[in-house]
Amino acid sequence: MLLRQPWVMPLVRICLVSAFLVGGVSKLLHFDAAVAEQVHFGLQPGWLWAGLAIFVEIAGSVCVITNRFTWLGAGGLAALTLVAMMVANNFWRLEGAARFMALNSFFEHLGLIAAFVMVTYLASGERRSRV
């Protein structure tokens, strides 16, 4: 069975966090743009929120990929995603096509948070089964 191949779960973990890892590195390399993004969404001070986002995106991704402190990495990424949902996908304030797009993105992010809960649960089961 494909799911039992030893390379599948590491690949799935990499895919799950790929947007965060790429985003964190990109923000690090373009810190001024990362600060401007935070300010655009009303998060002040922008440099603090950008730095926090970079740290969580990179460190959280590494935790999930390496399957070490998965609960902490996935939890941080889920919290960051929740903040982004509330700030950037505020569909309740929009109308028309903008509301539709924000609503869709809101629920995509909600699904991503659920995936982080699942990866944490699976990681804890892997640890129990190895003991």
Rank of each mutant, 00 (worst) to 15 (best):
M1R: 13
L3V: 15
R4D: 12
V8A: 00
M9C: 01
P10I: 03
V12Q: 00
V12F: 05
R13K: 10
I14D: 01
C15L: 13
L16G: 02
S18I: 14
A19V: 04
V25P: 00
L28H: 03
H30W: 05
F31T: 10
D32N: 14
A33C: 05
A34Y: 04
A34M: 11
Q38R: 08
Q38E: 12
L48M: 12
A50V: 07
G51M: 04
A53D: 05
A53T: 10
I54V: 08
F55I: 13
A59P: 04
G60D: 05
C63D: 00
C63N: 08
C63A: 03
R68Q: 02
R68P: 00
R68W: 07
F69C: 06
T70G: 02
W71N: 00
G73D: 00
A74L: 01
G76I: 02
A78D: 13
T81F: 12
L82V: 13
V83F: 02
A84G: 09
A84N: 08
M86R: 13
N89K: 11
N89V: 08
L94E: 15
E95L: 01
A97F: 13
N104P: 11
F107I: 01
F107K: 00
H109G: 05
A114Q: 04
F116T: 07
F116W: 12
V117P: 14
M118F: 13
L122S: 12
S124N: 06
G125A: 08
R128T: 09
